[in-house]
Design a protein around this nucleic acid. Structure first.
Length: 468
RNA sequence: GGCGCAUUCGUCUAACGGUUAGGACAGCGGGCUCUCAAUCCGCAAACAGGGGUUCAAUUCCCCUAUGCGCUACCA
């Protein structure tokens, strides 16, 4: 059985790149009917805090992921400690009593670029004495350069190899008895039965260290897939500089989780068919791990929004209503209006709202009389006779018994033809009066939707306002 | 600096040695039309460079360039 995992470190939010990593692990596990594990890597005692994991979990849930098991490494430190000592006893690792500040000084001054193995030369007597004095120490892996390369197969890139000379005697167990990433990740992946690791390419150079650990324990390494990174529009690794990298930010800006899932999956991955719109279940069904690309891709907000816009207009009004209900602004705006009216409003706006949030501006006129009119529109469309035209239209509309779209259109158009003016001469000012803007859904739809009372009212108010 | 990885339109990508190098987003132009969308039609736009291998290279190999990543008692 395939078992994958997502292993974030709790930094307070789910990075967009991590969200994609999580997603691909999830898709692969689900596609193969395997297991997907969430493991919080909170072994940095200085920076970790259990509360920080909550945001990450919230974001994972928002994008629709579910996991079969959930672990916190901070609750498992005894396990890692035990394994670190096992390597120590078996001669794969050694205690290092060096002062970290001194090592840092040496590397900074280019005296060494990796640890010089000084403590490997310590005699047993010396070690015993240091231990007796309670000297702080770490446990380092002893990388023995036997001239062989460390090679492994990456399922995205093929065979990758590293010279052992290039691998530092990395720390396994820190002075505070917490494990480093390398130790913890290997122990957990082994213990939890993880078979396939999909992770960012930034981990590619960590892999030889981990292979060394697997070998030392005589464990079979999992399959590796190093995913190309997501970059910003300038080609650099995606970070705060490029806008928000917080996954939940996109929820706040009105992106559907389905959009993000769709977009993120197709970044660096392509389905067989020439199609771009997928929902989660299709992605799971069709997921083919062989189709992950090797090279990085740039995050393009425009494309994300374009997919979002397409998803929104394919959605049922009712679903959009539910999603909008999660925004306070929506509830405030639509308070006191019946659901049928609101749903009709959604129907009118949904081909014009790239993000959910766009509803608040574009549909505002449906709920609140415009406080002011678009300045440029006034200049462009209001003529000497406009006020009079509006009055005549008001009279015509008041005569209508059945206030529906076709009747309204007939009434307006015949009025214009009687007055011998172009329909547009009346329609443009009318739009401004009713909505405040020069842009809106079709005018007859707007009139029918607002209803006779509101339309008449707004025309009257406009005549008063424009007289001043 | 060292090591590793990558390189097709502006962007996301397709192509498994032979194609007028395909699609999508963005851009531009047009149709529809009361505006804006939606929709329809069209335009422009790419194989990083150089060597090989081959009857034939975007595709395979090598070199160069460029970009990115890693180089912690962070993960």
């Amino acid at each position: 059985m395939i078992t994958t995992r997502f292993a974030p470190s709790p930094t307070g939010f789910l990075h967009l790149g991590s969200a994609r990593t999580a997603l691909l692990n999830y898709l692969y596990a689900k596609h193969t009917e395997g297991k997907f594990i969430l493991r919080i890597e909170d072994t940095d005692a200085k920076r970790s805090d259990k509360s920080l994991s909550a945001k990450i979990i919230e974001a994972l849930k928002w994008i629709g992921l579910e996991w079969d098991e959930e672990y916190y490494q901070s609750e498992r430190i005894d396990i890692y400690k035990k394994y670190a000592y096992q390597l120590l006893e078996n001669g794969f690792a050694y205690r290092c009593f060096c002062n970290p500040d001194e090592i840092e000084k040496k590397t900074k001054n280019n005296i060494i670029w990796k640890y010089d193995k000084n403590c490997l030369k310590l005699s047993q007597d010396k070690i015993d004495k240091l231990l007796k004095d309670n000297t702080n120490f770490v446990i380092r892996f002893n990388v023995v350069n036997d001239g062989n390369k460390i090679t492994f197969y990456d399922n995205v890139r093929g065979e990758v190899s590293f010279d052992k000379e290039q691998v530092d005697d990395f720390v396994l167990l820190k002075a505070d008895n917490y494990p480093t990433y390398h130790l913890a990740v290997c122990c957990d992946d082994h213990l939890m039965g993880v078979t396939d690791i999909l992770r960012g390419e930034d981990h590619l150079t960590n892999t030889p260290k981990q292979i060394l650990i697997y070998n030392a324990f005589n464990w079979e390494p999992p399959r590796f897939y190093h995913l190309p990174l997501i970059h910003g529009s300038d080609g650099k690794k995606l970070s705060k500089r490029h806008g928000s990298v917080d996954t939940l930010f996109y929820k706040r800006m009105g992106i559907l989780s389905e959009t993000l899932v769709n977009y993120l999956t197709l970044l660096g991955y392509s389905p067989q068919e020439n199609k771009e719109l997928f929902d989660m279940s299709e992605l799971i069904e069709k997921f083919d791990i062989k189709r992950i690309r090797k090279s990085y891709s740039r995050f393009d907000l425009k494309k994300l929004v374009s997919i979002n816009s397409e998803k929104i207009r394919n959605l049922k009004n009712e679903r959009i209503y539910d999603m909008l209900s999660e925004y306070e602004e929506f509830n405030r705006l639509t308070q006191g209006f019946n659901k049928e009216y609101i749903l009709k409003g959604i129907e009118l706006i949904k081909t014009r709202m790239p993000t959910l949030r766009d509803f608040f501006d574009r549909a505002k006129y449906m709920f609140i009389e415009p406080e002011s009119y678009d300045e440029k529109g006034l200049k462009k469309y209001f003529k000497e006779n406009t006020k009079d035209l509006l009055l005549q239209l008001k009279i015509e509309l008041e005569k209508l018994d059945d206030f529906k779209e076709t009747n309204i259109e007939n009434s307006l158009r015949s009025l214009c033809s009687r007055l011998n003016i172009k329909d547009a001469e009346l329609i443009h000012p009318l739009r401004i009066v009713l909505t405040g803007y020069t842009v809106s859904p079709g005018i007859f739809e707007v009139i029918a939707h607002l209803g006779k009372k509101v339309v008449v009212e707004r025309i009257e108010n406009a005549r008063i306002r424009l007289s001043i």
